[in-house]
Simulated scan of single mutants.
Amino acid sequence: MARQIGSSLAVLMVSDLARSQRYYREVLGFDVTEWWAVRDGLTGLALKLQQSPAPSGVHPNPPEAGQDTGVDVYAYVENWMALDQLYAEFTANGAEIAREPVVYAEGGPWKEFIVSDPDGYHLAFGGIDGSRTHCSFSPHVDSAILWVRDLDGAVERYAKLLGLAVRKEDRYGLLHLFRLDNGTHLMLDSRGMESVPVPERGPVLFKLNAFDIGKAAEEAEACGFTIVHGIERLPEVAYFNMKDPDGNVLMVTQDHPKGERKA
């Protein structure tokens, strides 16, 4: 069965919302909206900044026994290379470092540093020196890229299909970027596509999950997609393939417990 909880937000009550939003955006590199402040998507480091009605509402965690600095949020990275890059970025942007990088022999070894925000909340960033420490590639698919001919039409189509907001700041000339909840990006690129013919057939480029496979097929057709492989129901999964007007083929699946077929 597809997971039902995809992300969570830690809530920080702040004394000056505009100041905190500016700090998280400009100094810590978060994507900040009126709903959240996230770094690497909602499944990365995700916070909700809220204006405190009174100074007493701002209360960072006290240090645990034997420590000099309390921690309000922990964020974990893949390896020390990524950790060092974050530290360099934050310090270059003027972040207040509450604790310089330190290495603990136990637990990996483990390395971390702590950043302070304008209200004294402390964000700890850490990671182990794992097997990928000296690898230049991150083991994540960062973006899915679809070539499209009518960028505005494609943006409207995918925004409606996925229930996403269309933001001006996500348009980069002939390319539009959707920031998905799991940290992956969906890039719609129209550069040089005006005279390129639409392919008749193509491979499945990526897969989307659905909660109701039948309703998903109806919604896809309403958004302008063509069902190229009708709903097939297997013991553990149901799926169909669809194609957009630019010939991009996507798979949609609904997982369900073995032996249970969904209507």
Rank of each mutant, 00 (worst) to 15 (best):
F125K: 04
I97C: 03
T133C: 13
P101H: 01
I128T: 15
V115T: 06
P109W: 08
E112S: 13
P109Q: 08
S136G: 12
K111S: 08
K111H: 04
K111E: 04
I97M: 06
G108R: 05
L123W: 03
T133H: 15
I128K: 14
T133P: 07
A98Y: 01
A98W: 02
D129P: 05
K111M: 06
L123R: 07
S131T: 13
D117N: 08
P118Y: 06
D129G: 11
D119W: 03
F113A: 01
F113D: 00
R99A: 13
V102G: 01
F113M: 00
S116C: 11
V115I: 06
G127R: 10
T133K: 15
H134L: 14
S136P: 10
E112L: 09
G127A: 11
S116V: 10
G108S: 08
D119N: 09
P109D: 09
V103I: 14
I97R: 02
I114K: 02
A105H: 04
P118Q: 04
A98C: 06
G126I: 02
L123M: 13
I128W: 10
V102Y: 00
V102K: 02
F125L: 14
S136N: 10
A124V: 13
C135S: 10
I97W: 03
S116H: 05
V103A: 04
F125N: 07
S136R: 12
F113Q: 02
D119M: 06
P109G: 11
W110C: 08
V103E: 04
I114H: 02
E106Y: 13
I97H: 03
I114A: 04
G127W: 08
